[in-house]
Design a protein around this nucleic acid. Structure first.
Lengths: 198, 198
DNA sequence: AGCTGTTTGCTGACGTGTCAATAAGGTATC
DNA sequence: GATACCTTATTGACACGTCAGCAAACAGCT
């Protein structure tokens, strides 16, 4: 095993910013969603596809596929939401295994009331900070990364390709190892990801 | 209340890509971290600051501030990790309320072994897909958004300083911990605009 | 028909994060 | 030194997501 390709200062800075972005975004959205409509992010995520579906109902299978959710997770979530009266479960006539999830009037009313505040939050915290060009740029970058991350087993694909990545900057940024005896690894760990939290 | 400022198609596309990025990233990191070292993201997040600290120990308070974690969450996490032998708790001599969290040899060995694979994962899934210019661009955008979204956990974060800046790296840890995933509302992206149209 | 494998959905157990309450040590003020 | 208040850390109850396991229903095949 060769020496790990530790991150440069520049890379580290990007990594921290990028890695902390998800939780920050999530935190803000979840909070305002709950404050405005008494919904969790998961609640909202379920309500949206249902509200868009014809008859405001979907098979549990399709709902799960749409959201990329586990069947188990969806089942638990649906059960809780059904108890709160946001939706109901009905039998699927064509497939006895299936279950239809249908929005109740309360569920519809709830998401209808929540949407304006939600979009306003998204605007205020995201789009109001970006120019039109930046939106396009960020779209391209996010989609590129998302595509790569989406493929679970993408271990050895880069060999062939155009890994144009570069390594302009030298590394060796790990200075800090000094204080820790011996192990320069302390620095290395930090180099990867001080903000490794999830 | 005026008409909500619904998202355009272009904005919606960016929103979807951006909003799904966090969960995707987390999923990949968590998975490989667990496969390579038997650690969760939270485990790793705790180990990193400890491994960098002098004497490899920190007060629970400081550790919590560094990561932007709740006291309660930290206490639970520390208890579990102590049971696994990764760290130990000792009394703080100067403040009887305090608790020192200290890395055990096993804990040190664990993170030392985990770091190389972790940084390799980050490279493969993120940096290998980006050019040097893109890294700079993404850094700027992510930092701009992150700033607006507020510091995830850390009160003192980068803006204010604090940083023990030994060397290049350092700089306050951007906590981020905050809450765990929760819904990755890919759908919510849609909702922001779709529910709007009607 | 029977056999086999897959799909669909549910459940219980478990790990983790959040919240409220608790306790105890410190600090300020009178 | 007694009072009130803040800080620090822990705990238990609860909500949520993941996992393994289950059962019923479908589909394909002989």
């Amino acid at each position: 095993m060769s020496e790990p390709r530790w991150l440069t200062d520049t890379e580290q800075r990007m990594w921290r910013a990028l890695h902390s972005l998800g939780p920050s975004l999530e935190r803000v959205l979840e909070q305002s969603l709950d404050a405005d409509a008494g919904l969790s992010g998961a609640d909202f995520a379920v309500l949206v596809p249902l509200s868009e579906a014809p008859e405001r109902q979907l098979r549990a299978r399709d709902l799960g596929l749409t959201m990329g959710w586990d069947r188990s997770r969806l089942s638990h979530q649906i059960r809780r939401m059904e108890q709160r009266g946001l939706l109901v479960r009905t039998n699927c006539p064509t497939d006895a295994r299936g279950t239809f999830i249908e929005l109740t009037p309360l569920g519809w009313q709830t998401i209808e009331a929540a949407a304006p505040a939600h979009v306003e939050t998204v605007r205020r915290y995201v789009f109001d900070a970006l120019t039109a060009d930046e939106v396009l740029t960020l779209t391209a970058l996010a989609e590129k990364l998302g595509e790569r991350l989406g493929k679970p087993g993408l271990e050895l694909c880069d060999g062939t390709g155009d890994s144009q990545a570069d390594d302009a900057q030298a590394e060796g940024a790990q200075g800090d190892g000094a204080q820790a005896e011996g192990g320069d690894c302390a620095g290395s760990a930090a180099a990867v990801d001080t903000a490794a939290s999830r």
